[in-house]
Design a protein around this nucleic acid. Structure first.
Length: 474
RNA sequence: GGUGGAGUGGCCGAGAGGCGAGGCAGCGGCCUGCAAAGCCGUAUACGUGGGUUCGAAUCCCAUCUCCACCUCCA
């Protein structure tokens, strides 16, 4: 079985074959930290986190680099408007992004390079482009000469003459309106902290060059996969590829792009309101439910976000969690090592190998959980154990194993000590209720249950006694 | 204008010539003192008009609608 991935550049799926056997290098365009993260940002991160997990599960050693664009026009403008230093503004939002990624279980990347930390690499790359005739300096700025590079437009099939002009700098400074800035000369109204020395004078990097420079530093002249959101295809990725290839490097061998989160069919953006900021969504829903909602739709399909999206995901998450909890109680919880080594159902593997068809993979998980629940009812412990192992292994690939460390202690964020204290108190109520039920005193039994429910504690009766759990958030 | 994507049942979403993925919600049942959870069963479908075919949501032609990138964007 071979993993097949869709390549944006060729617009078809093909067998994935890494540059170096057994190893995969991925460069992912991370956030421009000029604002707070919203759900759409997380979708891209989750999509590539699932890719990383699937590659790792398939036996590859993955090096995923996700950059941070910590300086750009907008960061400078927004920080200035807020009366803040741009670097403090950027770092504050970078921390918000990191917290959001961690909340939904996105693995930390192998490297998280910042543009401002790689000025020497950027300058060297620009100098190389100037030397070989693909870039030119003008009044302290340097531009990429798109007409000098025949391949320009290859990634996204753009014909230069049909494009609107690039507006990242005044067009009168450029040989061709589509030329874009590699180095931007310092402007008088910009803070001196936003400028670095270069052979062309003080200034700062253009938007696209950082990714060319940083991917090369961490992943080499050529690497396996370059990822990012759909909106980055043009001009960002097109320009990255042009720079790197014009400089003589192989650059990305495969391009993957994740689609939007939409509302009523339209791309989510800040102008639609901030109800979709990660911080607000997580105030009302469990992080795992958000991850599930974002991962459930194929990464190249638009994900329609409706008011019930998170409720549905929460219901599914509760189903997974419930089965894992009940099954583990019955047959014991396998170790993480055993789960990681467990066999995966063929249908699941086929789905994941088919360009990460998570929706289909999820269907297999649901079928496994249903069989496991049935086995639980039937008292077939062997079948329960098999379903538990299989379900956790599959959920783990999606980063959603309820018993994995990132989620195991999630419930209300309560500490072990607090939970054990609460258990002590609730057990007294459960005992009292059991006595009332034995006496068929339903009024008392229901009153106890209602009182606990009022405190956010859910009681569920079973043949071998009652269990309690904290009500799900949201 | 250039480039690309999408229209599937109440909702979210897979699929891509022939046994109606899966989930959520609904309905009926089992279980339960009642619930919850779980299990079993179940209705409603492929934008529109033509065509090809024994057979089309899936192929072809036409058409309508929506979305995105080309300006910062996951």
């Amino acid at each position: 079985m071979t993993l097949r991935l869709y390549d944006t550049a060729t617009r078809d799926e093909r067998d994935f074959a890494p540059l170096t056997p057994g190893r995969v290098g991925i460069y992912l365009c991370g956030p421009t930290v000029q604002g707070s993260p919203h759900v759409g940002h997380l979708r891209a991160a989750v999509a590539f986190d699932v890719l990383q997990r699937w590659l790792e599960r398939s036996g590859y050693q993955v090096t995923l680099v996700r950059n941070v664009t910590d300086i750009d026009d907008k960061t400078l403008v927004k920080a200035a408007e807020a009366g803040d230093d741009w670097w403090a503004w950027a770092l504050r939002h970078e921390r918000e992004f990191q917290a959001a990624y961690a909340a939904v279980g996105v693995k930390p990347p192998a490297a998280e390079p910042r543009a401002t930390g790689h000025i020497p690499e950027i300058v060297a790359l620009i100098a190389r482009l100037v030397e070989n005739g693909h870039a030119y300096a003008h009044e302290g700025s340097v531009y990429f000469d798109v007409r000098s590079f025949a391949e320009y437009g290859a990634l996204t099939r753009q014909a230069l003459d049909a494009l609107s002009p690039a507006t990242d700098s005044p067009s009168e400074d450029k040989r061709d309106p589509h030329d874009f800035a590699l180095w931007k000369a310092r402007k008088d109204d910009e803070p001196t902290t936003a400028s670095w020395d270069s052979p062309w004078g003080p200034g700062r990097p253009g938007w696209h060059i950082e990714c060319s420079a940083m991917s090369q530093r961490y992943l080499g002249d050529e690497f396996d996969i370059h990822g990012g959101g759909l909106d980055l295809r043009f001009p960002h990725h097109e320009n990255e590829q042009a720079q790197s290839r014009a400089a003589g490097y192989g650059f990305a061998r495969l391009w993957m792009h994740s689609a939007w989160v939409t509302q009523s069919g339209a791309k989510m953006s800040k102008s639609l309101g901030n109800g979709l900021l990660v911080s607000e969504v997580l105030a009302a829903h469990e992080p795992a439910a958000l991850r599930l909602a974002l991962a459930a739709v194929h990464y190249r399909s638009m994900l329609e976000y409706t008011p019930s999206t998170l409720d549905e995901a929460s219901a599914q998450w509760a189903r997974f969690q419930g089965f894992v909890a009940r099954a583990s109680e019955k047959v014991g919880a396998p170790s993480l090592e055993d789960v990681a080594a467990a066999a995966l159902p063929d249908a699941f593997v086929e789905a994941m190998d088919d360009d990460l068809a998570v929706s289909r993979a999820l269907a297999v998980i649901h079928e496994t959980v249903r069989a496991g629940n049935a086995a639980l009812t039937a008292g077939d412990d062997a079948a329960v154990a098999a379903a538990l192992m299989s379900a956790r292994a599959m959920l783990g690939v999606l980063g959603l194993d309820p018993a994995a460390p990132e989620w195991a202690a999630e419930k209300a964020g309560a500490s072990d000590a607090a939970m054990s204290a609460l258990d002590f108190l609730v057990q007294a109520d459960i005992a009292a209720r059991a006595a009332a039920r034995a006496a068929k005193d339903w009024g008392t039994a229901d009153a106890i249950r209602d009182r606990l429910a009022g405190a956010g504690i859910v009681i569920a009766d079973a043949a071998d006694g009652a269990r309690w759990s904290l009500a799900s958030e949201g």
